[in-house]
């Protein structure tokens, strides 16, 4: 087992390197715009010359790698935060996104599972249909529609919650004050709907499949009450795909939802990725891109390993 894990980690680094090269070439294909005024155009060209943008892409890539390997310097941002080192650009914005997503996870994972289980147990009865349609509604309605509805009714019309997330200064210099939390309720709610719905649907689907399998029949014939059979056996089996999904949701915490952050003015990393493409801030794009890629690849390993961990029958890599 340990040899297998080592092999996987080595492969992750190879994949990481290939993706990094691909992204670097892809982004460098997009050329920034030249300013119009003659004098400023010459200035901008001189600045790009100084930063080495005119060199062939592979040479630039070599310089970029050398900076990372020798000084762990992922470059400076020129468009999003003028002259700020790239890791500062990311970590300044990480906390609000992580907080919002963490609150939403903590709020929606238990609800999602419970609703899923309840729906599975009451399969094809009116509760199940009610819950399924409710799930479908929340999964299918675009996030900016119910984000707007939540904002319109719970804040604009009634004034119970502030319209947008409060700033650090207004919240008394801390991210953990009551005003800050109250101002986060709406974005958390908006984020949670889709998580609860998708988790519930997934749990319901897995559980129904497990409930109809033959070992449940065996459990019942063994004399277990239906409640015991469900909790002891059915749920354990149903968890096989659910746990990795929760793990990947945890990992997903970091990418933040672009639209929710736009509507509730959350200063998070959500818009950073797209912003760096629009403004062609090369170093920020590479750093953010590689940040997510590393998280995804490492979560892949964790999930694959968790398969083996939860369901002993499914051994990885064995023929």
């Amino acid at each position: 087992m340990f040899k297998y894990v080592l092999k996987r980690i080595a492969l992750v680094f190879v994949t990481f390197f290939i993706i990094m090269t691909m992204c670097f070439i892809l982004i460098k294909l997009l050329q920034p715009e030249k300013p119009m005024l003659g004098a400023q155009a010459a200035m901008e060209l001189a600045r790009r010359e100084a930063l080495g943008y005119n060199k062939p892409i592979l040479v630039q890539y070599a310089i970029y790698l050398r900076n990372i390997l020798t000084k762990w310097d992922w470059g400076t941002s020129w468009e999003i935060d003028y002259m700020a080192p790239v890791n500062e650009v990311i970590f300044d914005r990480l906390l609000p996104t992580v907080l919002i997503n963490l609150y939403s996870m903590v709020f929606s994972v238990p609800f999602g599972i419970i609703i899923g289980i309840y729906a599975a147990l009451k399969k094809n009865r009116w509760q199940d249909h009610l819950i399924s349609t409710w799930i479908m509604i929340f999964v299918s309605v675009p996030s900016y529609v119910y984000a707007f509805i939540v904002q319109y009714f719970l804040s604009y019309k009634t004034g119970w919650f502030p319209l947008i997330m409060s700033s650090y200064a207004d919240a008394g210099g801390t991210f953990f004050s009551w005003t800050m939390f109250r101002s986060m309720v709406l974005p958390v709610l908006a984020l949670s709907f889709s998580t609860i719905a998708s988790l519930a649907r997934y749990t319901r689907a897995e559980l129904t499949e497990v409930l109809t399998s033959d070992f449940m029949l065996l459990a019942r014939t063994k004399g277990l009450t239906s409640r015991q059979a469900t909790t002891r056996h059915a749920l354990r089996n149903a968890m096989v795909p659910i746990l990795p999904m929760i793990i990947s949701m945890f990992i997903g915490v970091l990418d933040g939802s672009l639209i929710i952050e736009k509507i509730f003015a959350v200063p998070g990393v959500g818009g950073l990725y797209l912003n760096s493409i629009n403004l062609l801030d090369y170093d920020v794009f590479m750093a953010v891109g590689m940040f997510y890629t590393f998280i995804n690849l490492s979560s892949m390993i964790v999930i694959d390993l968790s398969y083996g961990f939860i369901d002993p029958r499914v051994r990885m890599g064995e023929r």
């Binding site: 492969l11 290939i18 993706i19 992204c23 892809l26 690849l297 890599g317 064995e318 023929r319």
Partner: peptide
């Protein structure tokens, strides 16, 4: 499974690493 799975898995990792928004923009 085994070697084939490992390689193909890595290939799909690489392709999934390709940022969808960048590809669409390009």
């Amino acid at each position: 499974g085994g070697l084939v799975d490992l390689i193909l898995e890595r290939v799909s990792d690489i392709i999934s690493g390709v940022p969808f928004i960048i590809v669409a923009t390009l």
